[in-house]
């Protein structure tokens, strides 16, 4: 999921200082799990804004905020509240924010959250980054642990000299990705394949931005 955290409230207030009324848009997926854009957070934001002397014309938690057309349909019943509002505050990720930008061309849209990374939830309110969306998966070669993400240097062929007692030079809280990979491949009895293969320089063109993908087959006329 996309991991978000609330933006500094003062910054948000600075963004919206010239506006009086707001529509709050959350998301029931990642932002709800992150505690940044579910029902409780929208309610709290409404109360905070009202305490600051602002008005809230409506609130809605979209099913999947990054799904543009679905969100458009879901928001139809809120037309009046959306027409009335000076601007929209989106309490999900940067993708959700830009869905609103696409749907409401003449309304200013502001993000309430910072989007951090694609993460795994390991337990409630604990999130880890494990995949960098590099566009060309190498997990088949590294025992299922991604060194592009788990190693701060993204090394592809083994640990650097900064590995100290199995931990990273960046922080003793980070276990060396390459020690983890090595140990796992050893356990799987796949060390030979790990040691014998030198991974070539990565082709970063697979992560050339902005990326698009169409998976729908065109219907034959």
């Amino acid at each position: 999921m996309i991991i978000t955290k609330k933006r500094d409230f003062k910054e948000l207030m600075e963004n919206i200082k010239n506006y009086k009324s707001f529509f709050l848009l959350g998301c029931s997926e990642c932002a709800t799990l992150c505690g940044t854009g579910g029902e409780p957070e929208l309610k709290a934001m409404k109360e905070t804004l009202e305490a600051e002397g602002k008005s809230v014309t409506g609130t809605f938690v979209a099913k999947t905020g990054c799904q543009v057309l679905g969100t458009k349909v879901e928001l139809k019943p809120f037309k009046e509240a959306l027409d009335k509002t000076d601007c929209i505050i989106v309490m999900s990720c940067g993708a959700g924010t830009q869905s609103a930008v696409e749907l409401y061309e003449d309304k200013p849209v502001f993000p309430a959250n910072d989007s951090l990374f694609l993460g795994n939830m390991t337990r409630l309110q604990f999130f880890d980054e494990r995949c960098s969306l590099c566009g060309k998966c190498i997990l088949d070669k590294t025992g299922g642990i991604c060194p592009i993400t788990a190693c701060p240097k993204g090394l592809l062929n083994g640990p650097c000299g900064g590995c100290k007692d199995g931990h990273c030079e960046i922080s003793p809280d980070i276990k060396c990705a390459w020690v983890r990979i090595y140990e796992r491949m050893k356990k799987l009895d796949r060390l030979q394949e790990l040691c014998e293969v030198t991974l070539e320089a990565k082709d970063w063109s697979a992560s050339q931005k902005p990326r698009t993908l169409v998976t729908r087959e065109e219907k034959k006329k």
Binding site: K153, L155, N157, G158
Partner: peptide, 28 residues
Amino acid sequence: MTGDHVSAGDHKGAKPVYDIESVQLLNA
């Protein structure tokens, strides 16, 4: 060499490159 991470140095906000690493540099 791969090189110490920027977090060790005096420009901690710099973007570390690591487009390639020591083994690939030797190959290059």
